[in-house]
Design a protein around this nucleic acid. Structure first.
Lengths: 340, 340
DNA sequence: CTGAAAGCGCTTACAG
DNA sequence: CTGAAAGCGCTTACAG
């Protein structure tokens, strides 16, 4: 491969001029720039990112920390983020931390971050205190999705409101005995999604003057299996709920399965609503509050670009409310027996 | 942050010695090495990967090309690969090519590859001719999963045999009218999985002297939705099949849905077997031929490491047969009406 | 076993 | 608008 020297020689200019011309910097005359571009094209010149990084201190790489790749929500976040990053000429370094939770198998370390990434995107997982400290010490800009940590920009929907929307949908249909299946809010301090969705549920129940039966508020892991188990417990109750608000579509699908296995008809015997609009939600006829992970990923990168290029353009407001939307399908309906 | 000069000064040696000592190279006395390590630790020294890359020509980054993140199979591959890469001190650059298929929105380009990755892992997707040429021209070592391309090491299960196992399971149960729902084998030349699985089906049908009804061999996209649509078509036949071999668990789940919607009981009216052992397979009671994507990802990296460090150790045989295993659950049984 | 020196291929003030 | 030169922070023969 050719180097910047070859291009400089071919174009009859200095390497400094080649560098400026190729990067579109000002202070290069148009004829010169054209000559440089032509020479570079002819030589199939490609800048060595490694040399450029050493000289400039920038890598044009963003580290993306993500707990699970396989989940619909995270895959959408990454896809959205990766798309915008590419538009800006950035690359994605996958920062695999093993899994979420405190028993992190492979915490972020200086070897991974130092001079390797310009910034880090934290996707809906709790960082360890040591990791937060490390990022601060290294001065790495961070934008998060779903995790509120002092001083870092955060992209997230209003989980309380989204949960209120879901719960109110059930209440408006006439349900009075509404259960909630959510995630364990004690696991992560900064990922408040489970707690927020539960708060939205409780607030709405209060607004409609509905009793919250503690046996109808279950905590489980954020999976189809978790929803299944929780659903079975709900159906075993002496007076089972007539409706369930699940904190995610995956949990909701599990509840649907439990209902089916338990011989309950949906929505006649049990209404179920989730949050997400998972790719299989339509498939299950699942009513849900849609959110848009790819959009959230895009927005996180927009904000990150503003952080990396301050003053470059009108900054994206990091407190822009993110959209969500109730989608009613066939898993929710009026209760067959009207409210007692 | 401190540089190698700081460490050299603190340890009272040259930067060359620091470099050798830190990388565990020979020709450094133990006392010297100890002194260097201590100084480096005290200064919290971290090697600048960017400077090391410029000097050595190695990046310790592997590009991973993947068509879909959200799918269970690909997420498993990446997880397995990322784990082993980290063990070897390599990082993962996510090479997002938009999607699979010929209408690739963002093909691999020299800017992404050149001096940015030491090697590329191609995960079960067809590369464009231009991309293959590019990788060859750049001299980038490539290992693939599931894609046979001349000259590149390839990790994959024996898809023909796996399909034979699945089909034989149905035949042994006494099914005679066995359908197959697979992927479109014309889409990708080098990803032979759909064609191989269909070949395994056909070969087994012949072995058991069973007729292959062309109306019972359907092509669809590799998704739950695709399986659903195909399943509906099968059930609309005047004489529907009593069993379906789906080329993947996701397709199989779609067929299960179609059966349920069509009022058919599984397995009484219809047996369904897939391939994968998807995380939801147990959930659906789906009989399947399990494969192990994380293991495949691990093995691909093992081979890649041998390519990058020839002679470093006994190379992993790239033709090691990969394991698969029939798992019988509740979606398959003897046909209720014995074979005509 | 150890060091001096060249070199990797850029970018960036600084001068002009 | 353009160039000479320093510098980014390592690794790698080469000598000793």
């Amino acid at each position: 491969m050719s180097t910047i020297h070859d291009v400089a020689q071919a174009a009859g200019v200095s390497t400094a001029t080649v560098s400026r011309a190729l990067r579109g910097l000002p202070r290069v005359s148009e004829p010169t720039r054209a000559r440089v571009l032509r020479a570079a094209a002819q030589l199939h010149y490609v800048v060595s990112p490694t040399a450029a990084s050493l000289a400039s201190g920038k890598t044009r790489v963003v580290g993306v920390v993500v707990p699970y790749l396989a989940r619909w929500y995270f895959a959408g976040l990454i896809r959205g983020a990766a798309t915008v990053l590419r538009e800006h000429g950035f690359h994605v370094l996958l920062l695999d931390v093993g899994s979420a939770g405190a028993t992190r198998s492979h915490p972020l370390d200086p070897q991974t971050l130092w001079k390797r990434v310009d910034a880090v995107l934290v996707l809906s997982l709790e960082l360890l205190a040591s990791e937060r400290e490390l990022l601060r010490d290294l001065g790495v800009p961070v934008v998060t999705v779903g995790v509120e940590v002092d001083g870092w920009d955060c992209v997230r929907i209003d989980d309380v409101s989204a949960a209120e929307t879901a719960t109110a949908h059930l209440a408006e249909l006439g349900h009075r005995r509404i259960a909630h299946v959510g995630g364990d809010e004690s696991l992560d301090v900064h990922v408040t999604t489970p707690a927020d969705r539960r708060a939205g549920y409780e607030r709405t129940m209060a607004r409609y003057s509905l009793d919250v039966d503690p046996r109808c508020v279950l905590v489980t892991d954020w999976t189809v299996h978790g929803g299944w188990r929780a659903g079975e417990r709900l159906l075993e109750l002496a007076t089972p709920p007539t409706a369930v608000f699940a904190a995610s579509d995956e949990i909701a699908m599990g509840v649907l399965f439990a209902a089916r296995r338990g011989g309950r008809r949906v929505p006649e015997d049990l209404s179920v609503v989730g949050i997400d609009d998972h790719e299989l939600a339509e498939f299950f006829g699942l009513s849900t509050v849609a959110q848009f992970p790819a959009l959230q990923g895009r927005m996180a990168v927009d904000i990150l670009m503003d952080v990396l290029n301050p003053g470059h353009r009108e900054p994206v407001a990091s407190n822009t409310p993110l959209p969500y939307e109730l989608i009613v399908r066939s898993s929710t309906a009026r209760p067959v027996r009207p409210a007692e």
